[in-house]
Design a protein around this nucleic acid. Structure first.
Lengths: 114, 114
DNA sequence: TCCACTATTCGAAATATATCGAAATATGGA
DNA sequence: TCCATATTTCGATATATTTCGAATAGTGGA
C-alpha cells in the first residue's frame, strides 16, 4: 500500500458522515447495504450521501455493486486492514516495542503489498 | 474513544506531511524527535511543520515535551491502537467475520475507553 | 412505451485547510 | 543583560471540501 492511497483512505474516513457510513457498512457485514438505506439511516439527503459514498469507494474502502434498482455498498475489509498495517509499519524501527512502549502491532502486521 | 476524537485523528493523518511526520515518529520510537529534526528530515519550513505537529498533537496522536531548547515529539501508540480498534468495532455485528469476509479484527478489539 | 423508483452528477455558495515569511516567545550561555 | 538557538503564533493568500436542490441516468413493471 502506498502513501497516496493511504492518504485518500484516511481523508475519506476523516469526516463525520463518511466515518458513520463506513462503520455502518463494517457492521452490516459482507452483505452490505443499499445507498438509500445508508442515507436514510444516517438522515442525510441522498445527493450528499452519494457524494460521500463515492469518496469512500474511490478510496477503496468500500465496494459498490448494482442489484436491480439499488446499488449495494459493502466495506472492503482488506483495505481496512492494509490501512492499519501501514500506520504501524516499521514501528520503533524494530526495537522492543511490544513491551514498554505499547506499540503492539496487531500480530499480523504482514501485509500483501497493494 | 468517541467519534469526534477519531475524526480529528483521522483528519490529522490524512495529509502528506503529517502522515510522513507521524510515521517518522512511529519509527523513531518512544524517544521521539525534536521538532527541528522532523522539519529538516521532511524538508519543510519550520513554521509549516509546527502547524502540522500541532494538529497531530491536538488529535492526541503524538506527545510533546520540552527538553532544553528543543521540543521533543513522540508517537502515542495507545492513541494509534485505539483508533484502529474503533474502525473495526462491532465488525459484521458479531457474525462470522474472521473466516470468509476477511474482517479479522486484530484479536484485541477490546478497547480501554479513552 | 410510459411511469415510478433508485441513485448519481452538476452547479454554486459556505466553510475549512495548507502554506510560508515575518514577528513573537522561551531557553541557555557568555 | 545581551545574543544565539529552537519553536510557535500571526496574517494573508491559495486551494480544497462540504452541502443540497435540481437535473440527469439507469432499471423494471404495467
Amino acid at each position: 500500500m502506498e502513501a497516496a492511497v493511504v492518504i485518500r483512505a484516511l481523508g475519506a474516513l476523516a469526516q463525520d458522515h463518511r466515518l458513520a457510513a463506513f462503520r455502518l457498512l463494517v457492521q452490516a457485514g459482507p452483505e452490505g447495504m443499499a445507498a438509500g438505506s445508508v442515507s436514510e439511516t444516517l438522515g442525510l439527503p441522498a445527493s450528499s450521501m452519494s457524494f460521500h459514498l463515492a469518496q469512500l469507494a474511490n478510496a477503496g474502502l468500500i465496494t459498490q455493486q448494482r442489484q436491480s434498482r439499488s446499488i449495494i455498498y459493502a466495506a472492503d475489509y482488506d483495505a481496512m486492514n492494509g490501512l492499519m498495517a501501514y500506520l504501524t509499519e516499521n514501528c520503533c524501527s524494530g526495537a522492543a516495542c511490544t513491551t514498554e512502549s505499547g506499540c503492539t502491532p496487531p500480530a499480523k502486521t504482514e501485509r500483501t503489498a497493494a
